[in-house]
Amino acid sequence: MISLDLFLRLNYLAGIMLFLIGLHTMLTHANLIKKVMGMNIMETGIFLFMVSIGYAHGTLSPIMRRGGPVQGLTYTNPLLAATVLTGIVIAVSTTAYALSLIVKLYEQCGTLDVDRLEKLRS
């Protein structure tokens, strides 16, 4: 069962909520631009979730300072920061390509509405 422990994980919860809001937007909105926005919200949620996994209370960002603490455990997890960066770049690429497809579709059909596009095609 879902336990109250869930509320000790509010950061994770926020990431998951954003993921679901984005997914819901993508599924329900007919407007293509809104679908792309939903996609971005969804991905942002995942990135928030990922950086939250990497964080630990009382730790520093993983950039070594001269004369700073040198013990590994005093920093946040750098691997997740690196994977999130990769994820962001992939999300940006997908968005750019999706927008250029939308621009071209709008030029050809004059609409951004999925249902109307469906009608135009048949």
Partner: peptide, 28 residues
């Protein structure tokens, strides 16, 4: 450069973005 190709590509792209989201969440 045809409307049905563009629309199919966009549909594929959006669905595979959802799939990518699921995969990334699963990995994390």
């Amino acid at each position: 450069d045809r409307m049905d190709s563009l629309e199919a590509a966009l549909k594929y792209l959006l669905l595979s973005a959802v799939a990518a989201g699921c995969i990334l969440l699963g990995i994390s």
